[in-house]
Amino acid sequence: MEILIALMIGVLYAAGIYMMLRRSLVKLIIGIILIGNGANLLIFLLGRITKGSPPIIPGDAHLLTEAYADPVPQALILTAIVISFGLQSFAIVLVKRAHTVVRTDDLDEMNATDEDS
């Protein structure tokens, strides 16, 4: 299972970098989204995939003796999802505004309009 997730992380990173190297702003945003999802899966994989109970220590024990799930990577992923959603929302609004002003989403044409003005 971990090998499959590692391969999926590699595919997401490769596709994200490929999309970010395109000239369109929409493809740039899609690339950022793919890399963000790959990073979330990477954090999840680093936390180890174990089947176990929640990390709650019973009242009569001092230590956990059985396998338990680590809650820290899950909390980090939830925080990363919220931050990436905010970044994606801002980028979409910024691209929409740039498209209404310049009338194109091609990065080379946007750069050329700066020199003409």
Rank of each mutant, 00 (worst) to 15 (best):
R23C: 03
R23V: 10
R23K: 11
S24M: 02
S24G: 05
S24P: 04
L25R: 06
L25Y: 05
L25H: 04
V26C: 09
V26L: 13
V26K: 09
V26F: 12
V26I: 11
V26T: 12
K27R: 13
K27Q: 14
K27D: 14
L28S: 10
L28Y: 12
I29C: 11
I30G: 09
I30E: 10
G31W: 08
G31Q: 02
I32H: 05
I33D: 12
L34R: 03
I35W: 00
G36S: 14
G36T: 08
G36P: 09
N37C: 13
G38E: 01
G38L: 09
A39N: 04
A39W: 08
A39D: 03
A39F: 15
A39Q: 02
A39V: 14
N40D: 15
N40T: 11
N40Q: 15
L41G: 01
L41A: 14
L41P: 01
L42P: 05
I43G: 09
I43K: 01
I43E: 04
I43C: 11
I43V: 15
F44N: 04
F44V: 08
F44T: 14
L45P: 02
L45I: 05
L46M: 14
L46I: 12
L46D: 07
L46H: 06
G47L: 01
G47S: 03
G47Q: 01
G47E: 06
G47F: 05
G47A: 06
R48L: 12
R48P: 03
R48D: 15
I49A: 03
I49M: 12
I49D: 08
I49F: 13
T50C: 03
T50L: 09
T50K: 13
G52W: 01
G52L: 02
S53V: 09
P54W: 10
P55V: 02
P55S: 08
P55A: 09
I56K: 00
I56E: 06
I56P: 00
I57K: 11
I57V: 15
I57Q: 02
I57C: 02
P58F: 03
G59T: 08
G59L: 05
D60L: 09
D60G: 04
A61V: 11
A61W: 00
H62G: 12
H62L: 13
H62Y: 10
H62T: 14
L63Q: 14
L63S: 06
L63R: 10
L64S: 07
L64M: 06
L64F: 13
L64P: 10
L64N: 12
T65N: 12
T65E: 12
T65A: 12
E66V: 04
E66F: 04
E66G: 00
E66R: 04
A67E: 11
A67K: 10
Y68K: 09
Y68S: 13
Y68E: 02
Y68F: 07
Y68G: 02
A69E: 10
A69M: 11
A69L: 04
D70W: 00
P71V: 11
P71N: 01
P71S: 03
P71E: 03
V72I: 15
V72G: 06
V72P: 07
V72W: 05
P73W: 04
P73C: 05
P73K: 02
P73L: 08
P73H: 03
P73S: 04
P73I: 08
Q74H: 07
Q74F: 15
Q74D: 10
Q74E: 08
Q74A: 15
Q74W: 09
A75I: 12
